[in-house]
């Protein structure tokens, strides 16, 4: 990763963080679909990034969000889990021939189908951890599943929109 990539990633994470804290904090479509758009910042980090720095990035991002959301620890736990699962999931769905040609798992580099199969399960796992921690002890596993499913769909839709609008296009989509 060169310095230009680093700066553009940093800017992206700051932008997503600000949007998440100021605009998406109180947004919940129909009371079930939450938007965790800041996850896009973790999802599109370069594939070659090692797990250890990834864990630290996710932990601090989740913690920052927690401080503003008044949900201390919940986003942190979920984001850390997401960061740990990401390399495993990337390996599991690697296209034949591996990731030689592209470096970042973005929409424009990998295509819509791949990006969906990459991001949807990841965000779903994140939401599952988050809502389980949120509803701990109050029962209602169905509620957790319900919220997780719709939140992951909504978040992925937003993530695709953001990438279509703001990311450099490499291939015609």
């Amino acid at each position: 990763m060169n310095i230009r990539n680093l700066i553009s990633h940093l800017l992206l994470i700051i932008f997503l963080g600000v949007v998440q804290i100021f605009l998406l904090k109180n947004l919940a479509l129909f009371g079930v679909a939450f938007a965790f758009l800041y996850l896009l910042g973790i999802l599109v980090l370069p594939i070659s990034l090692r797990t250890v720095p990834l864990l630290f990035i996710a932990f601090s991002l989740g913690f920052l969000l927690d401080v503003f959301y008044e949900t201390i620890g919940m986003h942190t736990a979920a984001a850390t889990f997401l960061a740990f699962v990401r390399p495993l999931w990337l390996k599991a769905i690697s296209p034949t021939g591996g990731y030689v040609d592209s470096e970042e798992p973005t929409l424009s580099e990998m295509g819509l189908g791949w990006f969906l199969s990459y991001s949807l399960p990841m965000v779903f796992i994140y939401s599952l951890v988050f809502f389980t921690a949120d509803q701990w002890g109050t029962g209602g596993f169905f509620g957790v599943l319900n919220k997780s499913l719709f939140s992951s769909i909504f978040t992925c839709l937003l993530a695709i929109l953001v990438q279509l609008l703001f990311f450099k296009r490499r291939r015609g989509i």
Binding site: T51, V52, L55, G62, G73, M74
Partner: peptide
Amino acid sequence: IRAFILFVFLEVAAVWMIVSN
């Protein structure tokens, strides 16, 4: 397995924060 150890450590820290909060 340093990544896994770090993961467990950070996760425990997060859970501790949830509980203490």
